[in-house]
Design a protein around this nucleic acid. Structure first.
Lengths: 217, 217
DNA sequence: GGCGAACCGTACCGTACGGTACGTGGCGGC
DNA sequence: GCCGCCACGTACCGTACGGTACGGTTCGCC
């Protein structure tokens, strides 16, 4: 399939990017069912024939949408300045937590995750993998860099970075992500109003588990 | 709609239960797309006409499947014996954690959650609500009873039961649930082999946050 | 034994949608 | 200025599926 190469190197022409953007808009608005080849062609002012030429088939369009969105994720390189105080790190972690919750509760993120979940059941889809291994690994990279910098600075104590990250993630996200995917209104989860408060609480707990001033293990 | 009443009182005849069971099997095997009215009728050896008579339409069938599965959930009443030791509670919490992870990673749970996620995007579906407010609230009730019993016995310390529950849930589940929904293989999550170990670790952390022998707040 | 209700199986209809083919209109190369 | 390329738009096809109608069969009830 020639469209596969398009997906793998995740390089899209401007026109294709426009089409995928329109597809994302449709997806956010109406879910996967809203992505019909005719509908997408109309919304993007392109022809169905072009869709099939570029992406192979409908499935290819969906994959491309995920790959495209994933390609937009950029890891904000952590400022690696030395001699950072505990306060500095706390601020960084708060920023991270807020970013994480903001991203996860974003409408495109929700829509895309729902799409990937739906595809996961159907075929033996590398679709959820794509989503998880791009978006998530970006998040994880940022968090791990932060965690290890804080450890080097003597503010955190842990052996297994992965484990520490998972704990941080669990404390921050809890089951909010799943509940949002299930359609629960953000307001009933205290978002975005209480987001800061929730992040604070999660970090308080995280620091009590991994902070250097507490005995670990 | 007459099928609505069926859903609400969640009472199904034996025959209907058989049909819904067949539907669950189809759902587990092939996802929502695999539930076609003709296919379900064939799999359940019933007529399409009966399907429409009982459940109204395809959507009604899906709702009924969720309601039916939810109706099977029973909360194992916590043994409320007094004078239980910290060890006893620890055992209970371990059982709870293992049950939780076992349920969430079960194939029917995964399939049903995927279904609900898919529906959440389409209509203004009370479908995910159903799932969340049945299965989840059952889990939550059990956990909260356990938490408060442990608090009364002086083994845990917290003000807000809901907050404690969320923390426990977050530490136990982390992002495993979402990743399973996205199709990640259980083995890559260390399930079910490392499940006990993961529960232990989560509970260690939870006790360090809420255990009575540690200062809280 | 006769009757009606419930249900099965099947055949049928309408439609929506994935996928393909064709005609048309810009646009860069010669 | 002519030509080939690419993409747009549209019209078209086949099919799969939701939903309905109908004849036949079983079963309980009088």
């Amino acid at each position: 399939m020639n469209y596969q190469s398009k997906v793998e190197d995740s390089e899209f022409t401007d026109r294709q990017a426009q089409v995928l953007e329109a597809g994302l808009a449709l997806l956010v608005a109406g879910g996967e069912k809203a992505i019909t080849t005719a509908g997408l062609a109309r919304a993007a002012n392109c022809s169905k024939e072009s869709l099939y030429k570029w992406f192979g088939d409908r499935e290819g369009v969906l994959s491309a949408m995920i790959a495209y969105q994933a390609s937009k994720v950029r890891v904000p390189a952590a400022a690696a300045s030395a001699n950072r105080s505990a306060e500095d790190f706390r601020v960084d972690f708060e920023a991270f937590g807020n970013d994480l919750l903001t991203v996860l509760s974003g409408s495109t993120s929700i829509a895309l995750n729902r799409l990937a979940v739906g595809q996961a059941s159907a075929d033996g889809a590398p679709l959820g993998d794509l989503l998880v291994n791009r978006g998530r690994s970006a998040i994880r990279a940022r968090a791990k860099a932060l965690l290890e910098a804080a450890r080097r600075a003597g503010h955190l104590r842990f052996d297994d970075t992965e484990e520490a990250f998972e704990t941080l993630y669990g404390l921050l996200v809890r089951d909010k992500h799943v509940r949002m995917l299930l359609g629960e209104k953000l307001t009933s989860l205290g978002l975005p109003l209480d987001q800061n408060k929730q992040v604070e609480r999660a970090l308080d707990q995280f620091y009590r588990l991994y902070g250097a001033e507490f005995a670990t293990l």
